[in-house]
Design a protein around this nucleic acid. Structure first.
Lengths: 319, 319
DNA sequence: TGAGGGCATAAGCTGAGGTTATGAGCAGGA
DNA sequence: TCCTGCTCATAACCTCAGCTTATGCCCTCA
């Protein structure tokens, strides 16, 4: 009655694994980011008006927005009283879930800002896709906490592109994940990444007790990244060039989607599948004998040790 | 010039650890959920019009929304052509970050729906806070993937409350995390949780190489949950009732916030701090000798093995 | 008993995002 | 060669969520 034009083409697609749950789109059932932020502020400050002040809106606006969120969710979130507001039990739970969304949004924000800043940035970073995707936002958030006014720019590409940027002085610090360090660069290992074998929960391998052996892995067609990618490279070397592709896909995301949909077992960085494992969309299959490890490295032009903001960021990446 | 009334009270609070980054609120820099969903659909389908159809909006609406998102972020996200649209490199990165937000929103959605559904639900779950917060949304998503039409209701509380619900037949399946199983209930261990010691990255302990010993831990004032909470209980038992509180707080969230702000070391479930560790807001401190493990259990009234949807959910929780 | 903080309600404005209608670029078959 | 059909873009219009200001009630505390 209020929303027009939504029913017509509602359920007609549906041939893909990454599709959201059935029914109307999420955005109609999940409050907007602004509302979630407001809820977090209310939880923290114990007052609608206080939260409103912090976000730079008026108290009635906050009041109304919280109320409409409660209506939308069908749950009372805060107990109002003449001397403040406290979360209800359900509200506390909702707030914790909301915090996850907001944290993901913060990572998005800091990443997106780095993609944009280009010119006037004091710190120019070049990173491989996997690192840019999964680790860099966290580092940038930490950096922002320490040095709020450091403008960062980010360029994502493969190892060769990272090396090129560094050597042509278009970047101050790089991150790569290959097995080898491009020539002309010094490096330090900042973390270790493991490739793991994953399947959808239904797959026979997901119920294995005995670890897979290398020969089994080599004998089974797998969902893989294309030849030449860092991930594929490690696997090929480890298995002696024997990895058999079931399909080859050109992005980590596509591989994940195929694996989740049950197309077969896939080999992926544990960085890439942390979320999926926690959510049980994928299951990790133990592997014997072969160590599918690779180093993540920070790199810079030989001799030019990072200084200033680059040095600061580097120190954040090691734990 | 467009937004009024934002500058006045902008920076005046600021005594809390959970505060978002400096500057205007996130919601003004991060696209709304609807826009992110649209972007994911475009990435998946390779067409603005196709994505529009899937979301039940018109093609011009999708076109305009993507464009305004590009303006907001200051980055070109998709390459339009007369025969479809593909993500740019930056767009691929942004899309991956966006996916995290949307996934968090899906977890929020399924959780919030469970909080609401109360009456007509076919599966009534009672769970401890930690489990409800961190694990249940994932399980419910998985359940929805298998049985899309199972309406679930959720009640969160401590072990005693879970037991009470089950015994009075107000819940079909429960989840608890204490050291003991409430009387009158059968149980099965579904996972193991470890308490870990964490500090802010600056803290001396964050640079320790030698693991902490139990005596050190017992001798140091810690940020803790209140006496009686499941977490505190485990710690007190493990250390022989010796844990010294620096402060006692009544929610996991508050403890995390205090630890992140550098107030001191805290002891928390690894479930609760996964995100913080990944983001480097907290650092885990290795501990020697003491095993701070506890079991997570599914519970049900003695003799009444779960059947139907409850059985289905139970089977999803074991890996 | 007033002063002050907290929340709610009412009435009005603005803009983001939706709609329909239309046009232009490119591919592939008659 | 020229339609037909897919793509995306532009224009003009409409609606509603969410903001504002102005006001009132409730409670506590000095």
């Amino acid at each position: 009655m209020s929303r027009t034009g939504r029913s017509r083409t509602e359920e007609q697609g549906g041939d893909d694994a990454t599709r959201p749950g059935v029914g109307g789109s999420l955005a109609h059932r999940v409050p907007e980011l602004g509302a979630l932020e407001l809820l977090l502020a209310v939880a923290r400050l114990g007052s609608l008006g206080g939260a409103a002040r912090e976000l730079g809106i008026t108290q009635p606006a906050a009041s109304s927005r919280i109320r409409s969120m409660e209506r939308q969710l069908g749950v009372a979130l805060v107990d109002r009283s003449p001397r403040g507001s406290r979360l209800t039990d359900a509200g506390a739970l909702v707030t914790d879930w909301a915090r996850r969304i907001v944290e993901a949004a913060e990572a998005f924000d800091v990443g997106a800002q780095a993609l944009r800043d280009r010119r006037d940035s004091r710190l120019r970073v070049a990173a491989s896709m996997t690192i840019a995707e999964y680790l860099l936002p966290g580092w940038l958030l930490a950096l922002r906490a320490q040095r709020p006014d450091t403008a960062v720019s980010l360029l994502a590409g493969n190892s060769a592109a990272v090396a090129e940027r560094l050597l042509s002085d278009e970047a101050d610090l790089g991150f790569v994940e290959g097995l080898t360090v491009p020539t002309g660069l010094d490096s330090v290992v900042i973390a270790h990444d493991h490739l793991i074998v994953v399947t959808a929960p239904g797959h026979p391998w997901s119920r294995r007790r005995r670890p897979l052996e290398a020969t089994e892995l080599a004998a089974t067609p797998l969902i893989l990244r294309e030849k030449g990618s860092g991930t594929r490279q490690v696997l090929d070397v480890t298995l002696g060039g024997l990895a058999r592709p079931l399909i080859e896909l050109s992005s980590t995301t596509a591989v994940k989607a195929a694996a989740v949909s049950g197309a077969g077992p896939a080999v992926l960085s544990e960085l890439a599948v942390g979320e999926e494992l926690a959510m049980r969309r994928l299951v990790s299959v133990p592997v014997q004998d072969v160590s599918l490890a690779r180093d993540l490295r920070a790199v810079w032009p030989t001799g030019h040790r990072p200084v200033g903001p680059a040095r600061e960021l580097l120190s954040l990446t090691r734990g």
